[in-house]
């Protein structure tokens, strides 16, 4: 009951986004404006790159996935006019599908060890003192299950609303909330030195 109440309070606490800067970009792209593609890249590339990195586990593969995602957006730009909110979730879904296709073409021969995996969190240039703490956080993130890791990164690093996290990962809202809650609890245990 308390878990259910926690998820409900988490969901209620998520305010609907007030404005959507991607809406105008989608309209401009659907109208055939080429310059909008560059603006869309500046607005959405970190999100797409982050999702690609989560799904593929390598920066080189993530770069290919981002290119593929923008290729899809350019060739299917007419569909962008009919996309309703949330558009960030739509972009995330495009990246997710591009990553899935990439992984189907280039599957990993073996699972990646957490120590060899790419960093999912970087220190901000203005605050380099957190490097050591963030190294621990990166290691702990790689100990999570992939769905929990993805939910945590999208929710707290890319700051997507919980509804967008749910749509971007293709799961119901309560499932996304549960993944965030369980992932955070596991992260707390890992960071405090308790593995279980």
């Amino acid at each position: 009951m308390s878990r259910y109440a926690n998820d409900v309070s988490e969901i209620d606490a998520v305010a609907a986004p007030s404005g959507d800067p991607l809406r105008d970009l989608f309209r401009r792209l659907a109208a055939g404006e080429r310059e909008a593609l560059g603006d869309l890249y500046d607005a959405a590339a970190p999100l797409l790159f982050g999702i690609a990195l989560l799904r593929t586990g390598s920066r080189a593969a993530a770069e290919e996935v981002v290119q593929e995602a923008f290729l899809r957006l350019a060739t299917t730009r007419a569909d962008l006019a009919t996309v309703r909110r949330p558009r960030a979730a739509y972009l995330a879904t495009v990246a997710r599908h591009a990553a899935a296709d990439h992984m189907r073409r280039h599957p990993f021969p073996h699972p990646i060890a957490p120590a060899e995996a790419e960093r999912l969190v970087e220190p901000r240039p203005s605050d380099p003192d957190t490097r050591l703490d963030l190294e621990r956080l990166n290691c702990a993130l790689h100990e999570l299950s992939p769905p929990q890791r993805e939910a945590i990164v999208l929710r707290y690093l890319h700051e997507l609303p919980l509804r967008d996290v749910a749509r971007a990962t293709g799961v119901p809202l309560f499932t996304a909330a549960s993944r965030c809650r369980l992932g955070l609890a596991r992260l707390r245990r890992l960071l405090s030195g308790r593995s279980r």
Binding site: G50, R119, V121, R124, L137, L157, H158
Partner: peptide, 8 residues
């Protein structure tokens, strides 16, 4: 920690 860092 997540607030102190940023996405790659």
């Amino acid at each position: 920690l997540l607030a102190a860092g940023r996405a790659p």
